[in-house]
Amino acid sequence: MARKMLEGTLKSSEMMGTLFFKYMDSALNAKNNNVKMAWTNVPSPLELFFANDVIPLQPELLSGVLSAMEAKTQKILTEAEKYVSRDCCSFQRHIIGNYFLKGFPRNPDMIVSTIPNSCDAQGKSFDLLNYFEKKPILYLDFGAEENEEGIEYVKNQLLKAADFIGKHSHYEEFNENKFKEMVKLSNRCVDLYREICNLRAIVKPPPSSSSEGFLLDLFNFTFKGGNFLDGIAYHEEILKEIKERIAKGEGFVDNDAPRIMWLFLPPLYNLQLFGEIFEQNNATIVFNELYMTSSHKIENHDLFEGLAKKYVRNIFNGSIEKRIKMNLEAAKKYKIDAAIHYSIWGCRQSTSGAPSIQQAFRDEDIPFLILDGDCVDPTQCSAGQVKTRLEAFLEMLR
């Protein structure tokens, strides 16, 4: 049996909170500091924003963090009911309610929405809020197949975005030279993320807990630290700590503990407690499909074509058949014992494809649980019921 860690979390995990508040402070004070700020959704081409010194504020990220902090969640969601149905995604309801309660930076210099991507509801939220803001807005369509025609289409979308962001930045045109620099830094972040995730998925005992894995994957899925230099420092510190754990043979579970694959987002409002359920039942999450949204490098000589390939390869971009294929390949590569799909109330992206994915995994004799719940709104599901179903599933794997 692996020796249990005395400390529950990586020290470097604290950096994520520090970087988030630094990022939010920069967005809140953008006007005072004469810096341009954009609203955008998750994920979005951060390389283009950073190249032109534009702060890309992601309202979805803020909603998730505020929910994790239990910061007036129900007040915010109740405010949203004045404008949208309770059947809508709780991320979008939280964004809308928080906006009208003046809970996040208003008056952006531009709005850039990527649709369809991991979420096409964000564009509709931006439409509503921009009725009041009246800012220049651009919609980017990344929904293309991974072939020559699809990549060319997305490349043209990105060129349009570069022109739009450049025009509304202080440079008044796209900064090509700084873009090349941002691509190098972005690729360095990806290299570090890949190395960390490979160690998480292969080494026994697993050198990180389920909660630590959730935080790392969410960091890369969203803001990447607010800039790539901070993102690189964050990854380097995590990699250092994980290698120290491996050298000492430290872990949270037995070497032969069930290896779980997680699909989609976790419940953010109770992330730490939820993650601990796995280790308490001698199981751990070693791989998250969010990895396949954030682990692609920009490798072409034509950087815009390389960036297009990065977004076309995003697991949430394209057909359900593509998502099934990529997940099954990962499950076989990392010798996954079981998979759990967290289906979020009001989210078409997470719920509509879950039964098809479940059947594909069962056809490969991989146990698969569809767990219904929510990411932001704890009233949409019973925490006790979710815990009971999860523990029963983990018990079955022993």
Rank of each mutant, 00 (worst) to 15 (best):
Y311K: 00
V312G: 04
R313I: 04
R313Y: 09
R313D: 12
N314R: 02
N314L: 06
I315G: 06
F316A: 09
F316E: 09
G318K: 13
G318F: 10
S319A: 12
I320E: 09
I320G: 12
K322Q: 07
I324G: 01
K325D: 12
N327R: 13
L328M: 12
L328R: 08
E329M: 06
A330Q: 05
A330S: 13
A331D: 04
K332H: 08
K333T: 11
Y334S: 01
Y334T: 04
K335Y: 01
I336Y: 09
D337M: 00
I340C: 04
I340A: 02
I340V: 13
I340Q: 04
I340T: 14
Y342M: 03
S343Q: 06
W345R: 15
W345C: 11
C347A: 00
R348K: 15
Q349K: 11
S350A: 12
S352H: 15
G353C: 06
G353V: 07
A354Q: 09
P355E: 07
I357E: 10
I357Y: 05
I357V: 05
I357S: 07
Q358Y: 00
Q359C: 06
A360M: 06
A360L: 07
A360S: 14
R362D: 11
R362W: 10
R362F: 05
E364D: 03
I366G: 02
L371H: 03
L371T: 01
G373I: 05
G373M: 00
G373T: 04
G373V: 08
D374M: 00
D374L: 07
D374I: 04
V376R: 11
D377A: 03
P378Y: 04
T379C: 13
T379K: 14
T379M: 14
C381S: 15
C381F: 15
C381L: 14
S382N: 09
A383T: 15
T388N: 07
R389Y: 07
R389L: 10
R389C: 06
E391V: 14
E391N: 11
E391Y: 07
A392C: 09
F393R: 06
F393L: 02
F393W: 07
